[in-house]
C-alpha cells in the first residue's frame, strides 16, 4: 500500500483510480471539496454519541443522589411568599417586568424571539462559517454575546439580589 500525500488539498490516493462520474450543481450534498476528510459514522460518530449519553446519564445519577429536588410545603393560595419568584429562566423577564410590565413582559421578549428568528435571513454572507469567533463576525457575535450576558446578569439579579417586595438585597447579609 502506498501512502496518501496528505499535504495536498485534494490528496490523491495512489491505490485508487479516479474518473469524472458526475457534475453536481449547488453545494447541498455532503460532498466536500476534500472527500478524504470524511469518516464512517459507524463507529466514529456513534461511539461519541454513546459516550456523551452515558456521561450525561451518569452525571444526572450522581446529582440525583447528592442534591434533592426542592419541595416546599403544600401550595396555599392564601399565603403568598414575599417575593414570589418565577422559575430561574424567567427571572430575567420578571426583573424587566418590575420596571415596566408591558415593555418588560411583552415587548422585550416578543422582539427577542422575532429577532432570533430573523437572524439567518438578515445575516446571510458566507463568511466565518464553521469557525469559532471568526474575526469577520465580530459585530454579530458581539451583539449576541452582549444579549446573552445581559440576560444572565438579569437572571442572577433576580435570583440573588431581590428580596421582599422585589426590593434590592445583598445575598451575603
Amino acid at each position: 500500500m502506498k501512502e496518501v500525500d496528505t499535504t495536498q488539498v485534494y490528496p490523491q490516493d495512489p491505490n485508487k483510480t479516479y474518473g469524472l462520474m458526475e457534475l453536481v450543481r449547488g453545494t447541498k450534498p455532503t460532498v466536500g471539496p476534500a472527500p478524504e476528510d470524511m469518516v464512517y459514522s459507524w463507529p466514529h460518530l456513534l461511539i461519541r454519541e454513546l459516550v456523551i449519553f452515558l456521561t450525561v446519564a451518569a452525571c444526572l445519577l450522581v446529582a440525583a443522589f447528592l442534591f434533592n429536588a426542592p419541595l416546599e410545603e403544600l401550595a396555599n393560595p392564601n399565603h403568598p411568599p414575599n417575593p414570589a419568584k418565577a422559575p430561574w429562566y424567567f427571572l430575567g423577564l420578571q426583573e424587566l417586568v418590575s420596571y415596566s410590565a408591558f415593555v418588560g413582559g411583552v415587548v422585550v421578549p416578543g422582539l427577542l424571539v422575532v429577532a432570533l428568528i430573523l437572524v439567518p435571513y438578515i445575516d446571510r454572507k458566507k463568511v466565518g462559517v464553521g469557525i469559532w469567533f471568526a474575526r469577520e463576525r465580530w459585530l454579530a457575535n458581539g451583539t449576541f454575546l452582549a444579549f446573552l450576558i445581559l440576560m444572565c446578569i438579569l437572571i442572577i439579579v433576580g435570583m440573588y439580589f431581590r428580596g421582599p417586595n422585589w426590593g434590592f438585597v445583598v445575598p451575603w447579609e
Binding site: 419541595l71 416546599e72 401550595a75 414570589a84 408591558f102
Partner: peptide
Amino acid sequence: LPWDQLAFWAITVGTSIAGYAP
C-alpha cells in the same frame, strides 16, 4: 405539578406576565 408553594407561586407570577400583553 408538584403543587407545593414554590410551584404554585412561580406559576402565578409566570402566568401574570402573560396577562400584561394588550
